[in-house]
Nucleic acid binder design. Structure first.
Length: 104
DNA sequence: GGCTTGACGCTTA
DNA sequence: GTAAGCGCCAAGC
């Protein structure tokens, strides 16, 4: 496991319930503003054994963007809704409201 | 060391 | 507002 992936997991673990962050934001917090793809790759590499709330990481527009067959967008939406994150008719969250800026 | 793939993002048309 | 293209970074082969 590379330092970058480890840093990604550590950062995601810091995301409090009811808040979400974009791949680009996580990358930016790690010092790589353009490494959104790298963040996505790291999360896609997550195994069964982990305590990383990956569902709190969504696309830059506040919309869920998944590619993994093991996880459906509906599941991620359900997990977020369970934490108090509301979705609008377009399937997007109240970005300005639930966006985590890196502070506890 | 170089090419390909992928949970992304921004710019331009 | 939607669609397509280019650029970004990390990991696997």
């Amino acid at each position: 496991m590379s330092d970058f992936s480890q840093a990604v997991y550590a950062m995601v673990r810091r995301v409090p319930p009811g808040r979400v962050v974009s791949y680009g934001d996580v990358a930016a917090l790690l010092g790589r503003p353009r490494a959104a793809r790298g963040v996505g790759w790291a999360l896609s590499a997550l195994g069964e054994e982990h305590d990383v709330p990956w569902w709190r990481v969504i696309g830059g527009r506040g919309e869920i963007t998944l590619r993994s067959p093991d996880v459906s967008p509906a599941l991620q939406r359900a997990l977020l809704e369970a934490e108090g994150v509301e979705f609008d008719a377009a399937g997007r969250v109240d970005w300005a409201k639930v966006r985590w800026d890196g502070e506890s």
